[in-house]
Every structure is written in structure tokens, then in C-alpha cells.
Design a protein around this nucleic acid. Structure first.
Length: 368
DNA sequence: AAAAACTTCAACCGCCGAGGA
DNA sequence: TTCCTCGGCGGTTGAAGTTTT
């Protein structure tokens, strides 16, 4: 049975609130406090849905709200928390006094996402976009030719279908391959530049995390229309070095959360040459891309059945939560049964989270 | 000056879980 | 156990404002 509407939508006012309506809410809350929001419109003399009243109060009228710009510290915290727990805006907002989940969400969507994209970081996975695409090349058995430029932001989404295909369990005899470059067409180009030999060979898994913004080589920039060039220092060859993170750009004096996190993943990297987070790259990216959602659903429907093993992985937030509803999916990803690999990864991430965000983790555990 | 393109963000939508009857 | 209501949440929309052409 579907849930009935909370109010008669045809008879309630919608759209922007007037100062008079705001005053009524404020007056009502001042006298009665916050209680049953469905009764508020009637008692306050408003022709609005109760839900709308609650939203107006929580997102705009609450006296403890800040209405000024986000500070760099707040920005950094949002990025770090988003990397850790994903788009759980309410949880992130609780770490930012005076900010609402709507504020944080809007700020992320309009500013921070673009900011990260501009510096070549995928805002969903918080990994360098080139790294994602290069890894995809490795995973799917495709070597991106030397000198091939990889593309940013929407190109990642454009790569969705074939990336997903790459993760799809194939029968051993299958030789299906796809060609990434056919889907990567974007006027925003990201180039990987090796400082040592200055060739543009994509590097995989062995960069050391020294990662800086450099001015584009003029000729290449002009021809490629590059917005941002990323300069990588490959001088140290330690393969267990952390991946660069957005933190690097933010100049945080603290130990990079993402770096430590990713380092642990790297250390636990299996002979498969694939980290579990890689799965998140493919599917969380897709899931958040409305353009692929429909297609994804269709494919899922097709794939479901006795042999279907491609189950959307839980978000990182779900991994960090105390709920178990992601376990089956993770198990499915690993071919069924419990996986010590996944469990150890989750344990490590939890430990790391505990040390980095103890308060947050406590709250998550409490909430769920 | 006007139109088009782009950005921002308040508000809405629909789903979900909790909890009470 | 089932049904219903409510509050909370994340994703999305679209009006208003701003910038660019």
C-alpha cells in the first residue's frame, strides 16, 4: 500500500516563502516549540504542507544557522568527510555547526565538486581521474597507448558502461573487450606528465603521491584545451606509496586521512591487482550518474539470476555503518561466500576511521 | 541594452525506518 | 503482525540572480 500524501497538495501553497509566512513559523515555534509539524500549518495559520514548514524551519529559520560563506576549514572537512562516508549530508552537516545538510549538499554540488574536478580529482571516488581510467585499462586488459590523454569529469561517467562491463564477471572463455577511447570524448583534457622523462606515458600504481599543480606546457595546453595539468613525481618507486588525495591540494598540515586510508588498501592489494575500492569507482560513479541509472537498472535486471554476480556494491558509508545490508553484496562481488580480503579491508578502514573520526564513527554506529 | 548561458540555492519529491495503535 | 503517520534523508528541480556574449 502506498503512503498517502501528507497533505492535500492541490490546496497548499508552494514555492518561495514570504517574510510574513516566516514570521508565522517563528512566532509559532517561539510559543509552542518544535513538535508535530503536521499540525503547525493549521495552528500557525499557514496554507502550507507541514513537511514544507519543517523544511523551512530546519533549513532557513533556525536561529543557530550560519548564513555566511563556508570557510576553508569547513570546505576541507566536507571533502574529507565526503571521501570517508560519501554523500551522507546530514552526518557531514552535524560536524559543521550552523550548517544544514541542504547547505552542505548545495555547496558540494555547486562548488566543491567542480573544484575537485578542476584539479583532476574524481569527486565521487576522490581519486585522480587519470588513475581511474588507467586502472580501468589495466583491469579490462586494455593498455592505454602511450601519449593517450585521459579525460576529466563527465568523461568518467561516459566511461561508465564499459567500466561496468569490465567488472562484469565474464565466463573464462569470454574475450570481450571494449575500447575506452571510443567513449572518452570531452573538451576538458587531463594529461599526466612524468616529471622525469616528460613523456606522457600513463603510470599505474607506482607513483609516490607527490602531486602538484603545474602550469600547462603551453603548446600541449593550447592543443588539448587543458584546464589543469597534474604533475606527478615518480622519482621514488615505492609501490606502496599512498595515492595523492584532495588533501594534498588543500595543504593540510595533518596527516592525510585519504592517504593513510589508501595506503592501507594498497598494502592489502591482492594478487588480483585490484582493490575493493575499485569496485566502488565503477558502480558508485554510475549510480550517482542519473544518465546511467536507467541503463544500470536494465543491465541489473538482465544480469539477475542464478549466475548474476554483479551486484551494486554498497556505498562506503554503508561499509562504515554498523548495518549488515552491504555484506551480501560485497560477498557477491567476490564470487560468493565470505571473503577475508573484504573483511580485512573493512576492518582496516574501520580502524582507520576510528582513529581519524572517532566521534563521527560513534555517531554512525549509534545512528545505525 | 538585450538575450543567452550559466550558477546558485531554496524548495520539493519520494523513499525509508521508527514507532505507535 | 499489519497498517498508518511522522520525521529524516538524499536526489532533483526550477526560479532567481549573475555573468557573458
Amino acid at each position: 500500500m502506498g503512503r498517502p500524501p501528507c497533505c492535500d497538495k492541490s490546496n497548499v501553497k508552494r514555492g518561495l516563502w514570504t517574510p510574513e509566512e516566516d514570521a508565522k513559523i517563528l512566532a509559532y515555534v517561539a510559543t509552542h516549540g518544535i513538535g508535530n509539524w503536521t499540525l503547525v500549518p493549521k495552528k500557525a495559520g499557514l496554507n502550507r504542507c507541514g513537511k514544507s514548514c519543517r523544511l523551512r524551519w530546519t533549513n532557513y529559520l533556525r536561529p543557530d544557522l550560519k548564513h555566511d560563506n563556508f570557510t576553508p576549514e569547513e570546505e576541507e572537512l566536507i571533502i574529507r568527510l565526503h571521501e570517508a562516508i560519501g554523500s551522507r549530508w546530514s552526518v557531514i552537516a552535524r560536524q559543521l555547526p550552523g550548517r544544514t545538510d541542504n547547505d552542505v549538499k548545495n555547496y558540494w554540488n555547486t562548488k566543491l565538486k567542480k573544484k575537485l574536478q578542476k584539479i583532476g580529482i574524481d569527486p565521487i571516488t576522490h581519486k585522480p581521474i587519470s588513475k581511474i581510467l588507467n586502472d580501468f585499462g589495466t583491469i579490462s586488459g586494455i593498455n592505454i597507448p602511450s601519449g593517450t590523454t585521459t579525460t576529466t569529469n563527465s568523461a568518467t561517467h561516459q566511461a561508465g558502461p564499459f567500466m561496468r562491463k569490465a567488472f562484469k564477471p565474464e565466463p573464462p572463455s569470454s574475450s570481450t573487450t571494449t575500447t575506452p577511447t571510443s567513449s572518452c570524448s570531452n573538451n576538458s583534457t587531463l594529461m599526466m606528465v612524468n616529471n622525469n622523462n616528460n613523456d606522457h606515458t600513463p603510470q599505474q600504481d607506482n607513483y609516490n603521491g607527490s602531486f602538484s599543480l603545474t602550469p600547462p606546457p603551453s603548446a600541449a595546453a593550447a592543443s588539448a584545451g587543458a584546464e589543469t595539468f597534474l604533475s606527478w613525481d615518480f622519482s621514488a618507486s615505492a609501490s606502496s606509496s599512498p595515492l595523492p588525495s584532495a588533501e594534498t591540494f588543500l595543504g593540510s598540515p595533518r596527516e592525510s586521512f585519504s592517504s593513510s586510508c589508501q595506503q592501507q588498501q594498497t598494502e592489502a592489494q591482492t594478487a588480483q591487482g585490484l582493490m575493493w575500492r575499485e569496485f566502488l569507482v565503477s558502480d558508485s560513479t554510475l549510480a550517482s550518474s542519473s544518465g546511467f541509472q536507467h541503463e544500470h537498472d536494465e543491465e541489473k535486471a538482465i544480469e539477475e539470476g542464478p549466475s548474476a554476480a554483479l551486484v551494486p556494491p554498497p556505498s562506503e558509508a554503508e561499509h562504515f555503518s554498523a548495518r549488515n545490508d552491504g555484506d551480501d553484496m560485497v560477498a557477491a562481488l567476490c564470487g560468493g561466500g565470505s571473503s577475508s580480503f573484504v573483511e580485512s579491508m573493512l576492518d582496516k578502514e574501520r580502524e582507520m576511521m576510528q582513529s581519524q573520526f572517532p566521534q563521527l564513527l560513534d555517531r554512525l554506529a549509534f545512528d545505525y
